[in-house]
């Protein structure tokens, strides 16, 4: 009904309002880090961010009208990609640094204390440089984040019941709205038509890189948990298990 009439401008303003506030780690960081202390800080922050991510998703127009099972699946599939895109956005003006939160910033080299994490830091820094080169705008960033959420499970579920089919078609219409919004945001930048098309392509191609880093990160976190380097608990544990216990 009324959502069909919601244009890209309104859609973007709604998802801009849905943006979560800055999250602080609020811990006394004892440097130098140990493998455990760094992993604990990273996972504590992720757990806090996840709670706000759920509230964020609920504010995306149309999200709550999807079936509850779709809502759950989408969030379980994409949470680390969403965290990583947020990290990239916060770090975009700080070359060589990863700004996990205003009170938790790491240099690339600090990744050395956690086995296997430097490779992930480097991929995140590379994606951040790419977004810096492209001069990513806030309007584009919020569209990309919504795109990650809505696209995350599209190719891994096949709807069976009529309720699932209906939710699926709502999801596809929602994705249309997000794509329209991104196209609209790009059209405001004063580029030629061809440049706009190229920008859309470059921005969306970066999402496959983020998916890749997220998969690497998921494996890494599982390894850290299995080796008892870090205790994963609460919401983060639930989200992590969703990605590992299927089989």
């Amino acid at each position: 009904h009324h959502r069909a009439a919601m244009g890209p401008e309104e859609f973007i303003s709604r998802i801009m309002e849905a943006e979560p506030p800055d999250i602080y780690l609020m811990e006394d960081l004892k440097k130098p880090f140990t493998e455990t202390s760094m992993m604990m800080s990273l996972t504590n922050l992720a757990d806090k961010e996840l709670v706000l991510m759920i509230s964020w998703a609920k504010k995306i127009p149309g999200f709550l009208e999807l079936s509850l099972s779709d809502q759950i699946h989408l969030l379980k599939c994409c949470w680390l990609e969403i965290l990583m895109l947020g990290l990239i956005w916060r770090s975009v003006d700080h070359p060589g640094k990863l700004i996990f939160s205003p009170d938790f910033k790491l240099n690339r080299e600090e990744g050395q204390c956690v086995e296997g994490i430097m490779e992930i830091f480097d991929m995140l820094l590379a994606a951040t440089s790419r977004f810096r080169e492209l001069k990513l705008r806030r309007e584009e960033y919020v569209c990309l984040k919504a795109m990650i959420l809505l696209n995350s499970n599209l190719c891994s579920s096949s709807p069976q019941t009529s309720e699932e089919l209906e939710s699926r078609s709502k999801l596809l219409r929602l994705l249309d709205s997000v794509i329209d919004s991104l196209v609209w945001a790009i059209s405001k930048l004063g580029l030629t038509t061809q440049q706009q098309t190229l920008r859309l392509g470059h921005l969306t191609m970066l999402l496959s890189h983020i998916r890749h880093v997220s998969n690497k990160g998921m494996d890494h976190l599982c390894t850290m948990k299995r080796k008892n380097v870090v205790l994963v608990y609460d919401l983060l544990l639930e989200m992590l298990d969703a990605n590992t216990s299927s089989g």
């Binding site: 709670v51 759920i54 509230s55 609920k58 504010k59 509850l68 809502q71 759950i72 969030l75 379980k76 609460d234 919401l235 639930e238 989200m239």
Partner: peptide
């Protein structure tokens, strides 16, 4: 109830 389900189904603050 899982925490995710609980957060999804509670009314916004």
């Amino acid at each position: 109830h899982t925490k995710l389900l609980q957060l999804l189904t509670t009314k916004p603050e």
